[in-house]
Design a protein around this nucleic acid. Structure first.
Length: 614
RNA sequence: GGGGGUGUAGCUCAGCUGGUUAGAGCGCUAGCCUGUCACGCUAGAGGCCGAGGGUUCGAGUCCCUUCACCCUCGCCA
């Protein structure tokens, strides 16, 4: 027994069948209860909680020592498992039928008073992130870590079973000026030159296809130096995959199956039905106003541009005249919205560039009242009812603007209405494929093109001739996977021939010289027997977040960063020694005219957290 | 870069229109307590009201600046 080490069992496995056994447990002290001549404490580890009892049969010295234990101290207890007295079982706990009667106690790791109680239900994010190691002891973060592990394991198993190879790609790689801002790493060996951390392993996985790897995947960190959101971290994890000799159907079916199986492994009751529904980008924009529709509730947008082309309401007529669209959505029961609530909705529309949010309410009698109701003709009202299926007691909200602005504004209003009216089924997992994205985003002012997905995406054959003439009309062979209104991932059929790739780069306005410098190796690669290939990448943090029912991916990342991309626990990013900067071959700009540039030997960028150098 | 929210005891929060000594619950410290499991009871300690400046007889409260955290627009191929 004494040779069994620090523990013989964990804190979640002892049951009535173990009664009479001498065991040794180790774990963290939770809610010690000193009743005087009787002391209880809960011993907790990742597996569960077991009650330890120090009763009258225990030597007084041991009982006193137990009574003095601080919560969250790490101890080792040896003793005999015994059934709890009649009426003292704890039905809420898997170990609740028994307790450990202590015969020895050792303090392995004393705990200072924690900055927050481990069992508190509300603690500020700032404090949680500063003491993330304590935060992770809590039930919710622990559950998120377990869920994440199980999901990633199931995904790996699913892909392994389908002949995929997991292959690692470089973290120190080449900067790509397109897309997101790169995190740069200076090269000491090549002064003045930089590596970049990958925004995704895109080019490497395509090259692996040329290498004949056929089916590749990787669970991999990606890095993008952009401003953060609840669902965006500077480093995040993707399930990245690529297949040779595959088209969009093969990829979508495969991803659907692998995800459905993995979700089924962690949430059997929510296993998605196959096939997952598909919708084109154009249809999604038309019906929902964005490319990641939340289809858990039925409210949709209707285009009533033709109906109000000659409207007596000038805002509509003018928007149509200017080439814009007028779209409407009917909020079920929205007539009950207060003026203040409507002002709130209007503020949301304005956030997305709308000049305002026209609205009116459909009265019991069928007519419209308040808002812009008085400007609408009977025919227009009838048309609105027909277009939206609105019922008395509903409210209309209008977007009259360019297609882009009316879509963005009304889709945001649509989501807020669903939240306010509690229209969303929170148990649902609505997966949805969005297909046929435009190949390029056209900048409205300059007319410049940017890849909507990325520049390796293959245009649909029917549009290949349009690359030079009308690139804005080109449809790509790309597809996104959406879950509950959240973009889970995207992929495409890739270009695998040099001439097409060359044309796309040219359409993007890259000069021959730029193409050679940035992507020469890709074009070269495609000359040496490139198979047709297609792929996908899933944002795993988001998937775990949605499955965990959390609102932020920080909740499912062990050590996340704040909205300002800082790590509150380590203090990163920090200043570094001037010598380190010199060695890296870079020079700092003076801190923007707030203080003098640092002198040699001083730390640069602030003096805090010097102790973190180890 | 812009907009909004928050910042008061170790934690979570209250503090009305500026007005005496800034409160509560939890935690912490000490004592009591033989079946607790959010143990209970008694007593106590604990505050640069995020920081800096200003207005005022007087500021947690009003004004300006700034910092941190959260949400968000832009941004995120």
């Amino acid at each position: 027994m004494s040779s069994q080490g620090i523990r013989t069992h964990n804190c979640g496995e002892l049951r009535a069948e173990h009664v009479g056994k001498t065991v040794r447990l180790s774990g963290w002290v939770a809610s010690p209860r000193d009743l005087g001549a009787l002391v209880f404490l809960d011993l907790r580890d990742r597996y569960g909680i077991t009650q330890v009892s120090f009763d009258e049969s225990v030597p007084e010295e041991l009982r006193k020592a137990a009574g003095m234990l601080k919560p969250e101290s790490v101890i080792q207890v040896e003793g005999v498992v015994r059934a709890r007295p009649d009426g003292q079982a704890n039905a809420d706990r898997s170990t609740g039928a028994i307790e450990l009667l202590a015969s020895s106690l050792e303090l392995l790791g004393p705990c200072a008073t924690p900055p927050f109680p481990i069992d508190a239900d509300k603690v500020s994010d700032e404090l949680r992130l500063t003491y993330r190691y304590l935060d992770l002891r809590r039930e919710r973060p622990l559950a998120a870590m377990k869920l994440r592990h199980k999901l990633l394991l199931a995904l790996r198993q699913g892909l392994d079973a389908r002949d995929f190879l997991e292959i690692e790609t470089p973290i120190l790689t080449k900067a790509t000026p397109e897309g997101a801002r790169d995190y740069l790493v200076p090269s000491r060996v090549h002064p003045g030159k930089f590596f970049a951390l990958p925004q995704s392993p895109q080019i490497f996985k395509q090259i692996l296809m040329v290498s004949g790897m056929d089916k590749y995947f990787q669970i991999v960190k990606c890095f993008r130096d952009e401003d953060l959101r609840a669902d965006r971290q500077p480093e995040f994890t993707q399930l990245d995959l690529e297949l040779s000799f595959a088209d969009e159907q093969v990829v979508q079916d495969l991803v659907s199956e692998v995800i459905a199986d993995a979700v089924g492994a962690v949430r059997p009751e929510q296993k998605p039905q196959l096939p997952m529904p598909r919708m084109t980008w154009a249809e999604s924009m038309q019906r929902f106003g964005n490319d990641k529709p939340d289809t858990r509730f039925a409210v949709e947008l209707s285009d009533v541009t033709e109906l109000v082309r000659e409207s007596g309401f000038g805002v509509f007529a003018n928007a149509v005249k200017a080439g814009g669209r007028v779209r409407v959505l009917a909020a079920p029961g929205g007539a009950a919205f207060s003026r203040k609530e409507i002002t709130g909705l209007e503020a949301i529309a304005k956030d997305y560039g709308a000049k305002g949010l026209a609205w009116t309410k459909l009265a019991e009698g069928g007519g419209v009242e308040s808002g812009i109701g008085k400007f609408l003709s009977d025919a227009e009202v009838a048309g609105l009812i027909e277009a939206t299926g609105a019922k008395p007691g509903d409210a209309f909200f209008f977007g009259a603007d360019s297609f882009k602005v009316s879509a963005a504004a009304l889709s945001a209003v649509r989501l807020e209405i669903a939240r306010k009216l509690d229209l969303i089924d929170h148990a649902a997992l609505n997966f949805l494929w969005i297909t046929d994205f435009p190949m390029f985003d056209v900048d409205e002012e300059s007319g410049a093109l940017a890849p909507a997905h990325h520049p390796f995406c293959r245009p649909k054959e029917a549009y290949e001739g349009e690359l030079e003439k009308d690139p804005g009309a080109v449809i790509a062979r790309s597809y996104d996977l959406v879950l509950n209104g959240c973009e889970l991932g995207s992929g495409s059929v890739r270009i695998h021939d040099t001439p097409t790739q060359q044309k796309v780069f040219e359409a993007l306005g890259l000069s021959a010289e730029e193409i050679r410098l940035r992507f020469g190796f890709v074009l070269d690669c495609f000359k040496y027997g490139a198979p047709p290939h297609a792929g996908f990448a899933v944002g795993l943090d988001r998937l775990v977040m949605l499955l965990a029912g959390e609102d932020s991916i920080r909740e499912v990342i062990a050590f996340p960063k704040t909205a300002q991309a800082a790590d509150l626990m380590t203090g990163a990013p920090t200043s570094v020694d001037v010598e380190q900067i010199h060695e890296a071959g870079v020079q700092l700009l003076p801190p923007s005219n707030k203080s003098d540039a640092p002198k040699d030997g001083e730390r640069v960028g602030g003096a805090e957290h010097e102790e973190m150098k180890s």
